[in-house]
Design a protein around this nucleic acid. Sequence first.
DNA 1: CGGATTGTTCTTCC
DNA 2: CGGAAGAACAATCC
Length: 286
Amino acid sequence: MPELPEVETIRRRLANILPGKKIAKFQVLKAKSFIGQASALFGATIVTISRRAKILRIKLKTDSDSANLLIHLKMTGQLIYLDSTGKKVGGGHPTADWINQLPSKHTRIIFNFTDHSKLFFNDQRIFGWIKLMTDREVENEWQKYGPDINTPHLTAKYLSTSWQRKKIPVKLALMDNQIVTGIGNIYASEALYAAKINPQRPAKSLTMAEVKNLLAKTQAIINHSIELGGTTFDGSFVNIHGFAGQYQKQLKVYQQDGRLCPVCGTKIKKVKLAGRSTFYCDTCQK
DNA sequence: CGGATTGTTCTTCC
DNA sequence: CGGAAGAACAATCC
């Protein structure tokens, strides 16, 4: 279920481990999961790991050229790293046993590095992908997206202008990648709760003060979740060492329907917006 | 067996 | 043409 904080959690750990490693073998176990020529990756060296929206970018250097692997985990993708001894490393809260038996039945792609360490791309539902792209293709890809929600210079004025003709519920506007990226179903509900705005309000109905507050609250939640290593439900999101995030303990409304609002004691409501579950407090959020 | 599940893209309709 | 709604993608789990 990775949203921006979960993908960023993965990025930070990969950035500490992968640069300098050389690909000895790139195994595609599921053709649908990889777009590109796998043979082009042989001998490539990893340079940097960055992130845009919910997409990871691994910059590569080959003998003659530069190349990039873009990775989108979609809903069930995972990246798990095993060191040269075949063990996972790093701290955190252990999840299920399957992590000790890789490749698993959901492993779609395996990076084998020359130092015998490995990176596994697991994806139960096969919505996620890894794509080989040139620098130019990556730049074109980035054009499709608005700025990241945690961009420091993102302004309320930009959001307000983008939303001024939008009749759609503000929750959907917040999740529109062409306007702003990184917010998925979980953090959209949490951010609107923190800003005391009803998720069903038309986006255009928000005042500038409300947009300003919503932006600040959303950024604070995203940054707090990054600090805690993201949100994990049922072990579905894990970092590259197979450990859960801790932000789920901070959730105020998401999947809390029936429980009481921590501020006013009203029962948290659950409704559907564009087919997605949406959680809010009818008393606090206006 | 029906309904639900994280993200994104495509189609269809107005 | 743009905006909005809904389906589709695949595999579970309850």
